[in-house]
């Protein structure tokens, strides 16, 4: 059995690139509408909540609310774009479009495909996160260099949420099940992880739990980077995010083996 799972893991360090390039080619054909569609919601939220609530809330953690929120929005958009790319686009490639089936006719393994999809979804996170960062920088809520500093964490956040969503699509029989993941896992995370208001507003027992969630680690790295402050224990957050990225990768690849290669 171990041998069977070994045979589906990535065959080498570069096979996944062919999968990434396939997705890039497909995206290039629809790049403009795709970019606008992905950016409209987070930017609307940034302006709506930032200006609206910003007036009521004034300063928060020593900065304007909109600057505080902008950093949270970068983390949220990294999370949602990787999640949606995986839940909907990767699921379609795995299921209805039979793209994965065609790839499995070649020398690539299931692990190569999953890895290519994860890096692709993370690439889309970088795109979305950077775009919001640029809007924030243009409005003067973040410096240009701070955006560059936040990009590695945005990419890692993308990998984490793509990896988690991979487990969901490996298990979900149809699209209809994704709504549970979105409304029961992702939406609560937005409010628990300090993305739109400080985690210190939560009851202390909830704070401990919230601190374990992947988005909290992302926010704790992205916000200090964008506000040009030093992050608290960055190594811990990076390690936690790496675990959240790597473990679901192996779990989802093993689940896909059971689903696709009976």
């Amino acid at each position: 059995m171990g041998e069977a799972y070994g045979a589906v893991m990535p065959a080498n360090a570069y096979n996944w690139i062919a999968v990434w390039r396939r997705n890039f080619l497909a995206w290039r054909k629809v790049a403009l509408p795709s970019l606008l569609g992905n950016l409209a919601e987070p930017i609307t939220n940034l302006f709506g909540l930032g200006f609206g609530l910003g007036l009521i809330m004034g300063q928060i953690e020593g900065t304007s609310y909109i600057a505080f929120l902008a950093a949270g929005m970068v983390a949220i958009s990294a999370m949602t774009s990787a999640t949606f790319e995986t839940l909907y686009a990767a699921f379609a490639r795995m299921d209805a479009k039979r793209t994965w089936e065609a790839v499995l006719f070649t020398q690539l393994t299931l692990g190569d495909i999953v890895l290519g999809e994860l890096v692709w979804a993370a690439s889309k996170s970088v795109l979305a996160g950077t775009a919001i960062g640029i809007v924030a920088a243009m409005l003067g809520y973040a410096s240009w260099t701070s955006i560059v500093c936040a990009i590695p964490t945005v990419a890692l956040t993308g990998l984490v949420f793509a990896s988690l969503a991979m487990v969901v699509i490996a298990l979900a029989p149809t699209y209809d099940y994704f709504v549970f993941y979105q409304s029961l896992i992702l939406t609560p995370m937005v409010f628990l992880c300090g993305a739109v208001f400080p985690i210190s507003q939560l009851p202390s027992s909830v704070q401990h739990f919230a601190g374990l969630l992947p988005l909290a680690h992302s926010v704790d790295l992205i916000r200090p980077a964008m506000l040009e402050r030093g992050a608290d224990s960055p190594a811990l957050h990076i390690c936690a995010l790496c675990i959240y990225a790597v473990l679901p990768f192996f779990v989802s690849t093993a689940l896909f083996r059971r689903r696709l290669l009976r």
Binding site: N15, T106, Q107
Partner: peptide, 28 residues
């Protein structure tokens, strides 16, 4: 090995040439 499956799994939104390119890359 070359495979011709029972149901086509071509890339519908790609051109004929792009299909060959994408597939060739899977073989390195």
């Amino acid at each position: 090995i070359g495979v011709v499956p029972q149901f086509d799994n071509l890339e519908l939104e790609f051109t004929v040439r792009e299909n060959l390119f994408v597939f060739g890359r899977y073989f390195g």
